[in-house]
Design a protein around this nucleic acid. Sequence first.
DNA 1: ATGGTTGGCTACCAA
Length: 267
Amino acid sequence: MKFSIATWNINSVRLRMPIVEQFLVRYQPDIICLQETKCQNDLFPSKPLRALGYEHIIVHGQKGYHGVAIASRLPLSEDHRQDYCGVGDARHISAIVQHNGRRIRLHNFYVPAGGDEPDRSINPKFGHKLDFVEEMKALHAEREPGVSSILVGDLNIAPLENDVWSHKQLLKIVSHTPVETEGLLEVMKRGAWLDLMRQNVPESEKIYTWWSYRAKDWAAADRGRRLDHIWSSADLGLHLEGIDILKEARGWTQPSDHVPVTARFSL
DNA sequence: ATGGTTGGCTACCAA
């Protein structure tokens, strides 16, 4: 049986419902995980999502900033939200999804961007990001017996050399500094997570999921970064059919600066 | 080296 899950930093879900609907109608993922919804729970646009068949919706929002949500055609249960760093930000939501007799724990993350200066002594936002990543190291893909795991989201770190347009030029740029990339690789290693995008595309090839709003012509410059990720426990890696990075969505009307990434499984 | 753009919400901050 087919099973697919998409992740998209939507940068205001209310503003971008037209392109969310366009994506769901055209590509029909079973589940969509959103980040940066920037919307309180009672204002979340559940109705149009339900109308498209996404009847199971869990949200963790706050006013103005951050916010994560999961909308699913399959039942969700045992949902929870972890307050990473104990600062009250809405940056994580999790639930168990049931598919074809299998139970999958799904985590949806929005890791702090970390500001501009990659030095925690002068930039507390960078310190917060490092602390957040440190706390993620405790999350293991095989934590619950008999339950597989998927972790998705905007992790705001491009860990590999070909996850950025120029490794050399970005080494001191927040999202690609060694302390961040090593930290994220340690999260994967300690938690036994598989990088599904890199299982699908060799490390020698460039992959981007984000292109800055600040470029004059994002497509011509093509200075992207892979900030969005889909990880899984080892058992699910065997069932991955493919990964789709919808670069085209960066050129849609009033786009997010991130594009949707979808993992397709046969399970 | 610098500045570039976007969104939310209030007269700036975060990204």
